[in-house]
Write a protein that binds this DNA or RNA. Structure first.
Ligand SMILES: [Mn+2]
Ligand SMILES: [Mn+2]
Ligand SMILES: [Mn+2]
Ligand SMILES: [Mn+2]
Lengths: 218, 218
DNA sequence: AATAAATTTTAGACTTGTCTAAAAAACATT
DNA sequence: AATGTTTTTTAGACAAGTCTAAAATTTATT
C-alpha cells in the first residue's frame, strides 16, 4: 500500500517518462510536483527501497514494472473520476482536475471497477486522454499537435496538452471542443500563428494554443 | 480547512455527543478512534486552538457551533457517499463503510451538492441514518430499539445501531432488511431474547440483536 | 584540463500525528 | 479523611514528509 505522497510521485514520474525516454531527473520531478529537489531526493530513496523505481545517485530514476503498474492504476482512477464528474455530476472539463487529484487516492478495487461499469467503460477522459483498462492496457490513439499540421490539412480535435482551467476556458470561449473539425487555412511564418476554420468560422490561433491542441488528422 | 485526522476526531466527538449529553471524555474518544488517550489529549488542544471544541483540562470536551457544523458536514458526506455506493455502484450495505470513511474527506462543495442531486436528495443512508441537508439540518425520525418493544407490539425496521459487516451480514442471512415489518410475539425473561414474526416467519432473536435494530412503531 | 555553473545529495530542522512511560488529577472506597 | 484506583495530561521519542543551507557531483565553458 502506498501513501498519497508516494502515489503522487509515482504518477509524476510516469507522466514525465511518457515524454522523455531517459531517466527522470530530480529537478524535473520537483518542478512537476511544485516541491524542492531535496524533498524529491528523500522520497526517491523510499520509493527505491519499495522497489517501484530504479535509482542510481545523480543518474535519475525510472519506474520498475511494479512502479509502472501502480502509476497506471492511479492514472486510471484519476481519469475515470474525471469522466464521472463531467458525465454524472455536471462538472465542466475545466473544473474536474483538482477534485480528481483527491479522488484518485481512494483505495477500493471494487469502487473503481463499478465506477468503470457505471460510466460504460469509457476509453478517454474529458480532456481526450486515454483511460488504462483494468489490466493497465492503454489504447493510445494516433494524434498530432495542431501546430504540426500544414496548410489545408484538417482533422478532428481529440485532446489537449495542457489541462489548466485557463486554457480550457479559453477553448470554451472560442468554441473549440473535443470532436470539432478543424482545418488549417493559413500559417504565418513570422510568429507561427494559424488561421483555422471551425464550424465554418475563421479563427486566429497563436502558436502557444496550437502547441496544446491535439488533432486526429483526416 | 481541517486535516483528515482532525475531521475524524470531530466526527467521533459528534457521534459521542449524540448519545451522552455531558462533555466527552478523552478515553471515550480514544476508544472510538482506536487510538491512545495521550494522542487524544494532544489533538484536543489543537482543536481547541482552532475553536472547534471547548476544552477544560480533565473536564472533557464539547463541540462549538463551528465544530458541530463541520462535523455535520462530514457526516453528510459520509452518508451521501454510502447511498451512492449502494444505489449507483451495487455495493451492499455491509461493504460501504470503509470506502465512505475515505470519501468523506474529499474537499469540494460542488461535488457533494451535485452528488446529492444525482441521488435525488436522499434523506437516509443505507443503514437508516438521517442525512443532514446542505444547511446541516438533521431530520431524525422517531425510532425505538427492538428490545424496547412489548409483546404484541409491531413496527417497521428503520435502522441499525451497529453498522459492522458481521452484524449486517447476519441480518441479511436472517432476511431482516430495512422496511420489513416485525412483530414481537414472545419475550423470554431469562435471557431477554425475543420471538418475532417477519414475512410471516417466526424467528428467535437474541437480546444483543434486539439492542441493535431500530423499529418505527406502528 | 582547469574552472565555473548547474544539478543533486546530505545534514539538520520543523510540523503533524502517533506512541510509551511517568506524573498529576479526579474519582471511589473504606 | 486517607488510601487506592482510574482517568487524564505531560514528557520524550519516533516516522513521514517537507524545507533551507551546505557539500558533493556532474555538466558546460573557457
Ligand atoms: Mn494526487
Ligand atoms: Mn484529464
Ligand atoms: Mn474518516
Ligand atoms: Mn451509514
Amino acid at each position: 500500500m502506498f501513501s498519497q505522497a508516494e502515489e503522487n510521485y509515482l504518477k509524476a514520474i510516469y507522466h514525465l517518462e511518457s515524454d522523455s525516454k531517459e531517466g527522470i531527473s530530480t529537478n524535473a520531478i520537483a518542478k512537476s510536483l511544485a516541491t524542492k529537489a531535496s524533498s524529491v531526493s528523500d522520497m526517491i530513496k523510499k520509493l527505491s527501497d519499495k522497489e517501484v523505481v530504479l535509482y542510481k545517485k545523480y543518474k535519475g530514476v525510472t519506474l520498475t514494472e511494479l512502479g509502472e503498474k501502480t502509476a497506471t492504476n492511479i492514472v486510471r482512477k484519476h481519469r475515470l473520476w474525471e469522466v464521472f464528474l463531467v458525465e454524472k455530476l455536471n462538472f465542466s472539463w475545466d473544473e474536474v482536475h483538482d477534485v480528481a487529484e483527491q479522488l484518485e487516492h481512494i483505495k477500493s478495487q471494487k469502487l473503481i471497477n463499478q465506477l468503470d461499469a457505471l460510466l460504460g467503460f469509457p476509453t478517454h477522459d474529458p480532456h481526450g486522454d486515454p483511460i488504462p483498462d483494468k489490466d493497465g492496457f492503454v489504447n493510445a490513439i494516433d494524434k498530432s499537435l495542431l501546430s504540426t499540421l500544414n496548410v489545408d490539412e484538417a482533422g478532428v480535435c481529440v485532446g489537449v496538452n495542457d489541462s489548466s482551467s485557463d486554457f480550457l476556458q479559453f477553448l470554451d470561449k472560442k468554441g473549440i471542443t473535443l470532436g470539432k473539425r478543424i482545418k488549417v487555412t493559413e500559417k504565418e511564418d513570422f510568429d507561427d500563428s494559424l488561421s483555422i476554420l471551425i464550424d465554418d468560422k475563421k479563427l486566429s490561433i497563436s502558436n502557444k494554443i496550437a502547441n496544446n491542441l491535439y488533432i486526429k488528422k483526416s
